[in-house]
């Protein structure tokens, strides 16, 4: 798993059925990458729904959040619509798990991404990373702490 101080590898994945997205497009912004095992988790207040509530807090720190799983762009579209998510979900679908592997957070046994968080600074360097047990929603306190220390560093 990539750690603080590593350069965040660029990648290009589908964000919608007809649109690809690469993190180099977000230069000059802080980026939160949230790898998660699968769309359609059965609880009503799941991790992606929580982040969806937090977009205004993230934008306070000039940060954009991206969700990533190995689900297809069509699954992401349906999931995103059903939860009214207002941030992109990227499909690490073909070749399966390639980006997750690049970041060292692919679970070969399950064929899914681990539940892992990265905060990347405006220069594309990883400022914080965290691997959560698969069954546990890691919340967002770690992300906010990381963003806060980035902001105070720049002042």
């Amino acid at each position: 798993m990539l750690q603080k101080g590593d350069k965040a590898p660029d990648f290009e994945l589908f964000a919608t059925p007809d649109q690809k997205f690469s993190i180099s497009e977000l230069k000059g912004k802080n980026i939160i990458l949230a790898f998660y095992p699968a769309d359609w988790s059965p609880v009503c207040s799941d991790q992606m729904a929580l982040y969806n509530e937090m977009l205004k807090y993230f934008s306070k720190y000039e940060a954009t959040i991206l969700g990533i799983s190995v689900d297809s762009k069509w699954s992401h579209l349906a999931f995103s619509q059903s939860r009214t998510l207002h941030f992109p979900l990227l499909a690490d679908f073909e070749p399966k798990g390639e980006v997750s592997k690049l970041y060292g957070v692919y679970n070969e046994k399950e064929g899914e991404s681990n539940r892992a968080l990265f905060v990347i600074d405006k220069e594309g360097i990883i400022a914080w990373s965290y691997l959560s047990p698969a069954a546990i929603n890691p919340g967002a306190d770690g992300i906010l702490d990381a963003l806060e220390s980035l902001t105070s560093k720049n002042q």
């Binding site: 009503c44 991790q47 546990i136």
Partner: peptide, 8 residues
Amino acid sequence: IRSGVNGT
């Protein structure tokens, strides 16, 4: 959020 709440 600060206290680590991740759902309700």
